[in-house]
Amino acid sequence: MSALREALDAGRFVVTGEIAPPLGTDLTAMRTSVETFAPVCDAVNVTDNQGATLHLSSLAASRVVLEMGVEPIFQQTCRDRNRLALQSDLLAAWTLGLRNLLVVTGDDPRGGDHPEAKGVFDLDSTQLAQVAAGFNDGHDMKDRPLKGATDFFIGAAMFPEAEPWDVQRARIEEKIAAGVRFFQTQAVFDPDNLVRAVEVAHAHGAKVIAGILILRSERAIRFINERLAGLMVPEHVASRIIGAEDQVRAAVELAIEQAMWMREIADGVHIMPLGLDAAVPEIVREAGLR
């Protein structure tokens, strides 16, 4: 049973972190990140070739996280595998003890470090959620019974700041209908936007873990605005960091404020540290979440 699911079902406000597996086989830095998050996080997302750039597989890295005694959220994108490989990896994930699954479309290869690669996208994220839900019901995509079913806690991405909102709302409802039980959102800066997203999810019994990006520098903000999918940092937020004498300090303070108001609206926070892992425990504690 997923401890993340138990916590959310019990109404506890959860905290999730995020790590990127290495480009290579040296797990030292990844383990350090996991150890930093462990005391303050309910679970840690393990990204899957994030930004369409090559990393160790989420499957292997998630297992490493699990063996360290921390609950991983195994991320699976639709970009790199066809439906045979996706289903095979879902079975692998379950047998390796991975209980939380986050299904995402995946960034286009043209924006990554292998722009010559073929983007597979045999399934989209909604369809992949349906497949995982089918596995939980004990059958594969062809309705054949599995010898041993899964019981994944199925999550998906959500974009509370993105317009047009009626399209986003429809997407949330479609993903829930497909079997999604929790959402992790892209970074949210406007509480009203988080409220509208949570209302839709809660109306259908799904949980929302709100995203916080630690905007550690002007350079990070530029990267987000130019490169990161589905997100722009609003001017009034960006200027607060860019105008600060100590940008890291300003970013941490902003994250603490966000965590505090998110606590009143959502079911948890998902902290994306952009390399500033060391700040995560402080943010969680200063916001009174632990």
């Binding site: 479309t105 043209r110 989209d124 993105a162 317009e163 047009p164 399209v167 589905g230």
Partner: peptide, 20 residues
């Protein structure tokens, strides 16, 4: 759709525009 997705938009959509 540059990704050929049947169901969307994906997470990259911003203000109605394509990410790719």
């Amino acid at each position: 759709c540059p990704k050929g997705l049947l169901n969307g938009p994906c997470g990259g959509m911003w203000n109605g525009m394509c990410e790719v």
